[in-house]
């Protein structure tokens, strides 16, 4: 693992677009949360959103989840650039197994998810500490849900990049699925005992209810967190298996 992580780091350390996009994501999440906190302190969100503990975990996770599409762009652009420069092929020719190549990228997926979650934890502390109530970890599971959600989104983005190979098309298709297709499917399938809420992105979204801002129809969450968590983990597993299967079978 350390061997693969080291190789990924050597590739990324001078990849300017990777670091700029990641910094933009961090700035956007920070800015969005501080803006919401400002509006909650003495603006239209006063009394509606509470940034003090223990609700800080849930509120910061929820607000940050709107921007998860940004690390998805990061992974899509990075994975597709390996295809454009054909360096993924060279990595395999030089001695990485195909499985190792995918594992190295999944380490990056995990790294981005962890970084996003860490950012959420730090922001929750930063915004919650000045509040009236003392530090509490009562709602800390929401940071865990955010990690699951981030892993789901970024894994799916990586799978799309692996299949489509062209960054512009991959970004377009990912956004189309995330914001249109799955919303439509969810709405349609919700008539069947709310199974629509168990779809890949929806299951992790509903963990951080009340749902995404961009969701066309927010019908509330019908499933318990353990059920949604299980669905998310199964989808993440399926996504990772699909990544391995696809990369092991295709011509590079």
């Amino acid at each position: 693992m350390l061997y693969l992580a080291n190789i990924e780091f050597l590739k990324l350390r001078r990849d300017r677009s990777f670091w700029i996009l990641t910094a933009l994501f961090a700035s956007s999440v920070t800015g969005a949360n501080y803006m919401a906190a400002g509006l909650a302190a003495n603006g239209p969100l006063a009394g509606v959103v509470d940034f003090s503990f223990p609700s800080a975990w849930k509120v910061v996770s929820f607000i940050s989840s709107f921007l998860l599409v940004m690390p998805c762009l990061v992974i899509i652009m990075h994975a597709c650039s390996e295809h454009v420069y054909r360096t993924h092929r060279q990595n395999v020719i030089d001695g990485l197994s195909r499985g190792q190549y995918v594992t190295a990228k999944l380490l990056l997926v995990a790294g981005l998810s962890l970084f996003s979650t860490l950012l959420v934890v730090v922001l929750a502390f930063a915004l919650g500490l000045p509040g009236e109530r003392p530090v509490s970890f009562a709602g800390f599971e929401h940071a865990g849900y955010f990690f699951v959600q981030a892993t789901m989104y970024i894994s799916l983005a990586f799978l799309v990049a692996l299949v489509v190979k062209k960054s512009a098309l991959a970004i377009g298709l990912f956004c189309f699925y995330a914001f249109v297709i799955e919303n439509m499917l969810e709405k349609y399938l919700d008539k069947l005992h709310h199974v629509g809420q168990l779809l890949p992105l929806a299951s992790s979204d509903h963990l951080l209810a009340p749902g995404r801002l961009m969701r066309i129809a927010d019908m509330g969450t019908a499933w318990s967190p353990p059920a949604l968590l299980l669905a998310s983990v199964v989808w993440i597993g399926a996504c990772l298996l699909a990544c391995y299967y696809k990369y092991k079978k295709q011509d590079l």
């Binding site: 061997y3 080291n6 190789i7 050597l10 590739k11 001078r14 990849d15 300017r16 420069y85 054909r86 360096t87 092929r89 060279q90 990595n91 020719i93 030089d94 001695g95 990485l96």
Partner: peptide
């Protein structure tokens, strides 16, 4: 192996690119 065209990371120097190759090959 040199197969078809040279494939390297364009933003990295020759030395940095070869460092990746050396790392992969151990």
């Amino acid at each position: 192996v040199l197969l078809e065209t040279p494939n390297f990371y364009p933003y990295l120097s020759a030395r940095e690119n070869l460092t990746i190759v050396a790392r992969i090959k151990g």
